[in-house]
Design a protein around this nucleic acid. Structure first.
Lengths: 245, 245
DNA sequence: GTCTATATTTAGATAGAC
DNA sequence: GTCTATCTAAATATAGAC
């Protein structure tokens, strides 16, 4: 067995265990045992528990971030050509890749979804570190495009909306069994199409409603009416590849 | 120091530590040390780590659940008198007590908010157990009232919406520092009024949008038009005190 | 790169004196 | 109820042979 295979074996089993038991709930011994390897190999390849965790996270986050950034770039390119920015399309751009990865059995992204779910609201160091490293740049770029598409929402309000949206998304892919329980079996947590067909309008409609109430709260705002939905955020160059891929 | 005070001291410090470090990240030794008590006292009063965790959670959850249930009962009583059910009022009923508790410095509910945030999407046993014991009954009652207020949303879709909503709410009260970071300091995570003034329309608008798209998807549904927003869910008696208070 | 062996710390839980 | 003392198990991490 080559070194590369050893590494990926460790990553595979660590991912599953972190997903099911959390960071502190998982021991490197367990990981090694599950992967049928010596424990010292884990430290040899990843140095520390956190570094292993980080590597597990990175492996899934990079392709997802790449997809999100590509979609954003496409949307901005379209906008630069004069098409109006469509909020729903932006929402799809930051929601679909994660939800699909989380629920696609072939991609192996199911445990990743659980890890994201555990991390997103966790104040602990290991969680904050990977969140900052892998999620924040993409989030900022998403926010920039959203801001251009929804000029009626104040900048700080939009950040809140984004945070709400991610919260909603993550609760949709968490594997807690809660939807099934609350719906007495009616909801199928694996039905990606259905989840997206509800989540996307939910988020879009939510932002829309906030836009309305926000505009009502401060009606005296500079308006250059009809064309304003077409403008590209700031420098369109900034988008393309600012994120690790 | 009386036994009752010892107990509540342990609860206080355990709550803070669980909030900051999670369940597995917190040791009973730390708790005892922080509370300036012998470690064996923790086991004497709470038997096991999980029981301590459960007690910590229970202390905050009961008053919040009481408030939520009371509000729901009021809403249903009003509806029984002929007033139409107002979705926004229902949303406030299941969101406000938690958000306010989470951000009110005097109530001591800040660490509770962090615990909820860590639990809500966690598949682990300790998390699922308290979630089931303390959150699910209230959720089911909330869903029943929501169902009556939003007859255009299919029953299983409404469960998804509820889960999205709780996800959004929890992400608003989590203490990750993320809003501040993403907004470059513009967002104040302690501004309860502001959070609620965005969160409530976000959720209400989200559900509204889902209602519209849901209705569009299956237009042929029995309709007894104008009065349907007035009807009370099922047996109105079922509400009042089915939950631990 | 992989192995064995082990150092070092810490965990949850209990026994029994007071 | 509270104390001291300790059991037993498990954790992360490292040293050094192959």
């Amino acid at each position: 067995m080559g070194a590369a295979e050893t590494r990926s074996r460790i990553l595979d089993f660590a991912e599953k265990l972190f997903a099911a038991q959390g960071f502190h709930g998982t021991s490197l011994r367990e990981v090694a045992l599950a992967a049928d390897l010596r424990q010292s190999l884990v430290q040899y390849h990843f140095k520390s528990k956190f570094e292993l965790f980080r590597a597990v996270y990175e492996r899934r986050a990079l392709p997802i971030n790449h997809d999100r950034m590509t979609r954003l770039a496409d949307i901005e390119a379209k906008a630069a050509r004069g098409n109006p920015l469509d909020p729903e399309e932006i929402v799809r751009a930051f929601v679909e890749s994660t939800v699909v990865t989380a629920r696609d059995r072939k991609s192996g992204g199911e445990p990743y979804a659980e890890i994201v779910a555990q991390i997103i609201n966790d104040p602990q160091d290991h969680a904050r570190k990977v969140s900052r490293e892998f999620m924040d740049v993409v989030a900022k770029n998403t926010l920039r495009v959203l801001r251009a598409a929804l000029p009626d929402i104040a900048s700080d309000e939009l950040v809140w909306c984004y945070v709400f949206s991610i919260g909603a998304m993550v609760s949709a892919i968490a594997r807690t069994g809660r939807v099934r329980l609350l719906s007495e079996g009616e909801c199928d947590p694996d039905d990606v199409e259905r989840i997206l067909s509800l989540l996307v309008p939910f988020i879009t409609g939510g932002m829309d409603a906030v836009a309305k109430s926000s505009k009502a709260r401060r009606p005296a705002l500079k308006r250059k009416s009809p064309a304003r939905n077409t403008e590209v955020a700031r420098p369109p160059h900034a988008l393309s590849r600012r994120v690790k891929v």
